[in-house]
């Protein structure tokens, strides 16, 4: 790692002011992407602002129809939360399958969402559930938040405070994970809210997380795995790498989508 100065504010407001004041500063959440990247000298921030002491960025609350998760809430906390398990069981399931137990004790929802890794799990959930990312400056719908590979709508100095999800029990997540990295080769999050159906796919898109409108239309007719019979995602725009080529990933999208629907309809 290259040298940096280290700061550990107690509130999101202090963090924002440090971020504005320090040259070339970066936020440190769980650190499970940033620290490895810094070790490889692929990132060299001049200052790290560690959010781990910001109590106002932590916690899970149910607010009416919405489930609100603080940005610094860890994957393990989301997975084990009775509120999450009750409001959106599929989200607790997703969190319980990120990385391994040690990673889940450190990694956070805010960090995952801000990094927008094209193979991360959370972006699919946010997009399919129509979540809102609340920052220290504004509210962003998931649709406008994720803007490309490792890119988001966040401005310089903007901090994610929490993520708000509309509750639904009719949702499911299925991923085919890379057995070494445990990232999604393909992950599909399916959600039904009222008559709205969303199918969001992570791990497969050249431009990061995306929706699959054909599957959504098919599921709108009938919300069952059978509705996806014969439906195949095109390999165009799909990632290919040493782990899986585009054709294979495109095939997996269909397979994982069915499994996600089975989970959402209680038939898994």
């Amino acid at each position: 790692m290259y040298a940096f100065t280290y700061h550990r504010p107690a509130t999101a407001r202090q963090a924002a002011s440090l971020l504005a004041k320090k040259e070339d500063a970066k936020l440190l959440a769980g650190g499970h992407t940033l620290l490895p990247t810094m070790k490889q000298r692929l990132a060299s921030p001049g200052a790290l602002v560690d959010l781990s002491s910001c109590a106002d960025l932590k916690g899970i609350t149910r607010k009416g129809r919405n489930l609100v998760i603080g940005a610094m809430t860890t994957h393990a906390e989301v997975a084990a939360s009775p509120e999450v398990q009750e409001a959106i069981p599929a989200l607790a399931y997703l969190a319980s399958h990120i990385g391994d137990p040690h990673v889940r004790h450190r990694g956070t929802i805010g960090g995952s969402v801000a990094n927008n890794d094209p193979a991360a799990d959370y972006p699919a959930a946010l997009l399919a559930l129509g979540a809102t990312v609340v920052t220290n400056k504004r509210k962003l719908a998931a649709e406008e938040f994720f803007s490309g590979l490792y890119e988001t709508a966040l401005d310089e100095g903007e901090i994610i405070v929490k993520v708000s999800f509309p509750a639904t029990s009719k949702a499911g997540y299925a991923k085919f994970r890379n057995p070494a990295s445990r990232y999604a080769l393909v992950g599909v999050f399916v959600a039904k809210r009222g008559s709205e159906i969303a199918v969001a796919i992570t791990g497969a898109g050249e431009g990061g997380v995306f929706r699959w409108p054909e599957a959504e239309a098919a599921l709108k007719a009938r919300f069952a795995g059978k509705s996806l019979d014969g439906l195949k995602h095109t390999a165009k725009g799909i990632n290919g790498d040493i782990h899986a080529d585009a054709e294979y990933r495109a095939h997996l999208i269909g397979v994982m989508a069915k499994q996600a629907v089975a989970q959402a309809t209680g038939k898994a």
Binding site: R8, L28, D50, H102, H105, R106
Partner: peptide
């Protein structure tokens, strides 16, 4: 009280 990977945690954290 929670298992973590000490190679990916800053001492100062």
């Amino acid at each position: 009280g929670k298992a973590v990977k000490a190679c990916t945690t800053l001492a100062l954290s």
